[in-house]
């Protein structure tokens, strides 16, 4: 996706957000609705301005040579983000003790961060460390899932 399309998408999202909240504000008593309505208008104006700005820059850029950006590993970022999403989704039903070391080992292995035995070692020790810190010491809750 080029820069202009990205800005267009961002403008569209903020625009929709503002409109949805603006419409919803009519369910509210006036005192609660005044500020959000004013803010919604500002967001609408600014998101359009942002798109206009991007459009203007795109025109200008076409005339100049822009230096190429260093490429990023989009696929890897996507897979890693998906791993995080999976971790977040599974930690409650399956529990901290199962999902955390699994996530760490898979992530470290996928990213080729270390050799496997080191990944396992890091994963296990970090899982235990967090447990000791949050649960044993601070008496804080963590999702136990199957282990409750």
């Amino acid at each position: 996706m080029n820069n202009l399309a990205k800005h267009g998408l961002a403008s569209a999202i903020t625009l929709i957000l503002a409109i949805v909240l603006y419409v919803d504000s009519f369910n509210l008593p006036p005192a609660a609705a005044n500020l959000p309505r004013a803010l919604a208008w500002i967001i609408i104006v600014l998101s359009l301005a942002m798109f206009a700005e991007a459009l203007y820059k795109e025109r200008k850029k076409a005339q100049e040579n822009q230096e190429p950006k260093e490429p990023i590993l989009v696929f890897r970022v996507f897979v890693f983000a998906a791993m995080i999403a999976l971790y977040v989704a599974l930690i409650k039903p399956l529990g901290y003790f199962l999902v955390t070391p699994l996530f760490l080992i898979t992530a470290l292995a996928y990213l080729e961060a270390t050799r496997l035995w080191k990944a396992v070692l890091i994963a296990l020790s970090f899982t235990v460390f967090c447990y000791l810190l949050f649960v044993m010491f601070l008496h804080l809750p963590i999702p136990m899932g199957l282990f409750s």
Partner: peptide, 22 residues
Amino acid sequence: LWKKAVISGLAVSLMLTMTACG
């Protein structure tokens, strides 16, 4: 990595002591 192991080992033992008190 060695250094890290030593540090985390220290941290864990510290936590254990504190847990016992807490």
